[in-house]
């Protein structure tokens, strides 16, 4: 973990009882199961989850394309819908990086923005560092890989927490694939603006994942998974990625406090 530095050290809320969930625009229209699964998982930990219906998108697509004003208008609308001083748990590392770090620049004139940003927690970091989740594995023995995602790794420092969670699963062998830390080639509009470069990157990523000989890979980022799964499907490979919230929920069907569902 040579590259993870003190930037990522932060205070985590102790014994939280109530959180907001930020669902992200990709999960909203394309992959809603992961949002439901994240809520289910958190509720089983005894956490009350509030999902404000006013949320839409963090603004990252426009921001990364250089359209700051357009991104700002959307970002400003988001923060309005999370008024309570409770953690905001987000099921994507890159949207998390946007709201935790880039909002400080984008909305620097907004009063209280620092405090808002400090309430943003990526799902896996929240489970490990705030809830200290202990998992019971009820699934069959299998080999899985983890795609760590660049923003999750470098902006949020949460590739470690994803790993820690999977390592808690007794029957799961976590396999490190070649070039694990390397970008999958998504990068939002990069993947269409420079499609030829992005295509080569995702081909390499899928090749490395397939060569790892795993039954699935998991990730906490739908942007990357949409890219990697899309490429795997295009190549008629059977391997697919699964959101870590869904995976943990499925593996940890019976948690140690008994079945609360």
């Amino acid at each position: 973990m040579s590259q993870v530095n003190t930037l990522h050290l932060r205070d985590y809320p102790k014994n939280p009882t109530k959180v907001y969930l930020y669902g992200t625009c990709l999960a909203d229209s394309l992959f809603p199961d992961s949002g439901i699964d994240a809520i289910e998982f958190l509720e089983r930990q005894g956490i009350e989850v509030i999902f404000p219906q006013g949320q839409s998108c963090c603004g990252q697509p426009a921001y990364n394309s250089g359209y700051t004003d357009e991104a700002k208008a959307v970002a400003l609308e988001q923060i309005r819908h999370f008024p309570l001083d409770i953690p905001i748990v987000i099921i994507s590392g890159s949207c998390g990086g946007m709201m935790r770090h880039h909002y400080k620049d984008l909305l620097k004139d907004e009063p209280g923005i620092e405090k808002f940003c400090d309430r943003i927690f990526e799902f896996t970091e929240f489970l490990v560092n705030s809830l200290n989740v202990q998992l019971n594995d009820s699934g069959p023995a299998e080999r899985v890989a983890l795609h760590t995602s660049c923003a999750a790794r470098r902006e949020m420092g949460v590739h470690i927490t994803g790993k820690k969670l999977i390592e808690q699963l007794d029957n799961v062998e976590l396999v490190t694939h070649d070039y694990e830390s390397e970008c999958c080639g998504f990068g939002g509009t990069f993947s269409v603006k420079h499609g030829d470069i992005s295509n080569v990157m995702v081909s390499d990523k899928t090749k490395n994942l397939v060569n790892a000989d795993v039954v699935r890979y998991v990730s906490a980022d739908w942007g990357c998974m949409m890219n990697i799964n899309g490429s795997l499907e295009h190549q008629k490979e059977s391997l697919r990625g699964e959101h870590i919230a869904s995976y943990l929920l499925a593996r940890n069907a019976m948690d140690n406090t008994g079945d609360k569902s």
Binding site: G23, L30, P32, I36, S191, V192, G195
Partner: peptide, 24 residues
């Protein structure tokens, strides 16, 4: 466009997360 040169198109869900949470 460029997306599907090397990838399948993503498929929209039957219902959004917003709706499913409301129903839940």
């Amino acid at each position: 466009g460029a997306w599907t040169v090397a990838r399948s198109a993503p498929k929209l869900a039957p219902k959004t997360l917003h709706e499913r949470i409301k129903e839940r």
